[in-house]
Amino acid sequence: MRIGIVCPYSFDVPGGVQFHVRDLAEHFIGEGEEVSVLAPADSETTLPGYVVSSGGATPVRYNGSVARLNFGPVTAAKVSRWLDHGRFDVLHIHEPMAPSVSVLALMAADGPIVATFHTSMIRSRTMQTAYPIIRPALEKVAARIAVSEDARRTVTTHIGGDAIVIPNGVYVDRFAAAPHRPEWTSTPERPTIAFLGRMHEPRKGLPVLAAALPAVLDEVPGLRLLVAGPGDPVEVTDGWPERVRQAAEFLGSVSDEDKASLLASADVYIAPNTGGESFGIILIEAMSAGACVLASDLPAFSRVLDGGAVGAMFRNEDPAHLAEQLIGLLKDPERRRELATSGQARAHLFDWSVVADQIRAVYETVVEGRLAAQTEPSTRWNRFLRGGAR
């Protein structure tokens, strides 16, 4: 099967959609499929052989974040050339309403099209404004996928119709096999907690975690906070109490291997996100690595953590409750082990071996539907002729 996958966000900057597209493409390539990915990327970016750059991206504020998108007539020409050259059996467009190569591919493409929606938004003026313009193109989509119930609700609210829920995938075994790093592993005197994300984005919740730490340090004075992700530590820590700054160690952006080791090494992984999350792939990665997870009670996170059965939760944007839950976990190693064990077992539900099979089934359905639609007129005419002969 020749599969074309479109990612609207630049491969220059790590993100959940980019990782999803990358891992899905590599899974199918490993199974012998022909896969090509189209995505924005700067010319100096080193890309995997299966990725075709649509050109450099421009930062645009989108869905509470800053996304790097690619649009315009030059980009549209590149999209058309990629589609003509690929002659794909199925085209899989991620975030088809994002103002980037996804919309351009949707408008230019013909044939079996699958669209995956990642975004979770209660209200979106952008979507409400854009929908009438791209509605004719959206009607070409043969199957819709949402990565979560929250993303599905966005589809039903802003676009109409429905979508099948297929979650994000994780290579569980890769995280489970990650080695502990001595410099990140806790000691009885110095337990470690970890945060991963774009630290300068308020919705990722680092300010909430920082506000909780004074109370935690009162009870666990040796605590270390390991922060991984892009951002300027000097800017981010402006206004933090001195002892909180002293407890924080900033690692910068880390490789996939180091991310897995960090998650495996920490006593608790904390996800203090305040909103805008439709799934929570980092929770699955942490669970896969055997980490005990503490997350805000966003609906998307609650579903991943089975309502708190496989990870602890605190009230969203409530530093005092975060501190209370974290202190309890740090002082109860047995509970941490129980949550980590149950979380790792649940993570296998999201392994790529499971998720990719579900996506493949959607591909096969739309391809077969397209073939049936193409042959239906002649088949009906032949039945009419046979009936007339009798």
Rank of each mutant, 00 (worst) to 15 (best):
R2T: 15
G4D: 09
V6F: 07
R22S: 13
A25K: 10
H27V: 13
F28K: 07
E33F: 13
S36I: 12
S36T: 15
A41C: 08
L47C: 07
S53Y: 06
G56D: 14
P59H: 10
V60P: 01
V60M: 11
R61Q: 09
Y62L: 12
A67C: 13
L69R: 03
L69Y: 04
G72Y: 12
V74L: 13
I93E: 01
H94T: 07
H94K: 01
E95T: 05
V103C: 07
A109I: 07
G111E: 04
I113E: 03
A115E: 04
H118I: 08
R123Y: 14
T129G: 10
A142G: 12
I145K: 01
E149N: 15
R152S: 04
T157D: 14
I159R: 09
I164D: 13
Y171E: 15
F175D: 09
A176W: 05
A177T: 05
W184K: 08
T187V: 08
P188M: 13
R198E: 15
R203V: 13
K204Q: 14
P214I: 05
L223K: 03
L225M: 02
G231A: 04
D232F: 03
T237Y: 13
D238P: 00
R245K: 10
R245H: 02
Q246G: 10
F250L: 05
F250T: 09
V254E: 07
V268S: 01
P272N: 00
N273S: 14
T274D: 06
G275S: 01
E277N: 00
M287W: 01
L294M: 00
S296A: 02
D297K: 00
G307M: 04
V310A: 01
G311L: 00
E317L: 03
D318W: 03
L326T: 09
D332P: 05
D332I: 08
Q344H: 10
Q344P: 01
R346Q: 09
L349E: 15
Q358N: 07
V367S: 07
V367E: 14
V367R: 15
L371P: 02
P377Q: 13
R383M: 09
R383W: 04
G387V: 00
